[in-house]
Amino acid sequence: MPYPQNTSQSYEMQPIKSVKSRTVVLPSTDIDTDQIIPARFLRTTTKEGLGKQLFSDWRYDANGTPKTDFVLNLPESQGAAILVAGNNFGCGSSREHAPWALMDFGIRAVISTEIADIFSSNALKNGLLPLVIDKATHAWLMEHPGADVEIDLETTTLKLPDGKSVKFPIEAFARYCLLNGIDELGYLLNQDDAISRHERAYP
């Protein structure tokens, strides 16, 4: 295998084999990163503590009181680690604060029929699984909030409550890094010779 062993320079990441949880369903389509974490919360210099601002303008009223009808505030949503959302989740800005906020809140996977490119890339680097699945399975999940499902990263399958499984695509190297708790930066740092050759060829 061309993969590196975990180098001393690699960031400590917990290996992820699977995520098993009830789902919470946010049916809106085109949920953009300004909804996930509004820009006024980006005036920070750390990654920590953004979960309390997740979906802030949907979760709280003008006085900062949680809106009782918003799905993440419902008692049955507490502790759910898998978010099922409408098509084209995470569109808009490149802010990595979006996956940081979801992770800090306790979300470990997002399931949709389409997930924006930059959000997906950022999510994978933080151990948040972005799952794109077929429309029929997605429609079933949208209609069954609170379903107990399991995402198996080793077999790249989503296991549904009735025992059925569906496959999901995931970039091979990102999957390898997640399964083994390896940070991608370690791999890039090991490419130093090739990068230097490129710099000499194209100064």
Partner: peptide
């Protein structure tokens, strides 16, 4: 193209 902060580090 735009990148996230982890990639900025890379």
């Amino acid at each position: 193209f735009g990148i996230g902060t982890t990639e900025v580090g890379h």
